[in-house]
């Protein structure tokens, strides 16, 4: 299902330099509403820099438009409130807190309880917390099948589950665009399949647009509607998964040669492994 109408997120001529190193130069691509868009590229291609620029940690040149509105001057919390949620490559959960509290934190920007409400825990504080608990339990915890660990401290969980909790926390942010930084890195095949299923379900059931960075070519090619290939901070190809696979420049970036058949063989093998 490729998205229709205007793109929900437009990255336009994004350029980011650290001293003399250009991490991104003139990166331009659209993210269609309701699509799953993947950014791929070799290590050091600038994928995480791109994510950090979109979520507001870096201040690049160029523009980022979210639902038609320029957001490049907004601080990260403001972008979060607009509906831009993300997960991190190295899980950024709060290890000492329980799964439930971690997920609840996602809703922070959408709640209004102030300090006085909180101290007395009456009226608004109680009402908001109860609504939140119900919503987290019934829409998120149930959906991601993590009921059994809701009161466990996050630090005690295995890696795959922590990734899932991070996804849960991002969903609690009521995102319009969900940015996933390597959602299946380091996972075994079963965990990867679970995660791919959750990503597809999130798109179907929640109508959330997904933008992800991922190295697992099998998964990228299976579930993406649009693939953007970065190399040395530049977009070298973008389009439908099969078109990108056929692009000789992509093959060169990955394999160091222009031989398309090598890459096709490699990608085909990856895809079979996952399927």
């Amino acid at each position: 299902m490729a998205g229709d109408g205007t793109p929900i997120l437009e990255v336009d001529a994004l350029t980011l330099a650290f001293g003399g190193v250009r991490a991104l130069s003139g990166v331009t691509f659209p993210v269609a509403r309701g699509s799953i868009t993947s950014v791929i590229g070799p290590n050091g291609a600038g994928k995480t820099s791109l994510f950090n620029s979109i979520s507001g940690f870096y201040r690049p040149q160029g523009s980022v438009r979210f639902e038609g509105q320029s957001i490049e001057r907004l601080a990260p919390p403001k972008r979060a409130k607009l509906g831009l949620a993300r997960t991190f490559q190295n899980i950024a959960l709060f290890r000492g807190m329980t799964v439930l509290d971690n997920i609840k934190l996602g809703r922070h920007a959408h709640m209004r309880t102030g300090v006085l409400d909180a101290l007395f825990y009456l009226g608004r504080a109680r009402r908001e917390e109860m609504e939140l608990r119900r919503d987290v339990e019934e829409r998120i915890i149930d959906f991601l099948e993590i009921d059994h660990i809701r009161k466990a401290p996050v630090g005690s969980l295995p890696y795959g589950l922590q990734k899932r909790v991070e996804l849960a926390r991002a969903l609690a942010m009521r995102p319009k665009v969900l940015m996933l930084d390597e959602p299946v890195a380091g996972m075994n095949r079963e965990e990867t399949e679970d995660m791919a299923r959750f990503i597809l379900d999130v798109r179907e059931e929640w109508g959330v647009t997904v933008l992800m960075v991922e190295h697992d070519m099998g998964m990228v090619m299976d579930i993406s509607d649009h693939v953007v290939v970065l190399n040395f901070g530049q977009v070298i190809a973008q389009g439908l998964p099969r078109d990108v696979q056929a692009d000789p420049q992509v093959a060169a970036a990955y394999l160091g040669s222009g031989n398309v058949d090598d890459l096709r063989a490699k990608l085909g093998a990856d895809a079979r492994k996952v399927a």
């Binding site: 601080a75 979060a80 949620a85 993300r86 934190l105 920007a109 942010m173």
Partner: peptide, 17 residues
């Protein structure tokens, strides 16, 4: 919860709004 988030990881706290 926001206090604890700031203590544990202030960067991801910002991303959460």
């Amino acid at each position: 919860r926001a206090f604890i988030a700031v203590r544990d990881r202030d960067i991801s706290a910002e991303v959460l709004g």
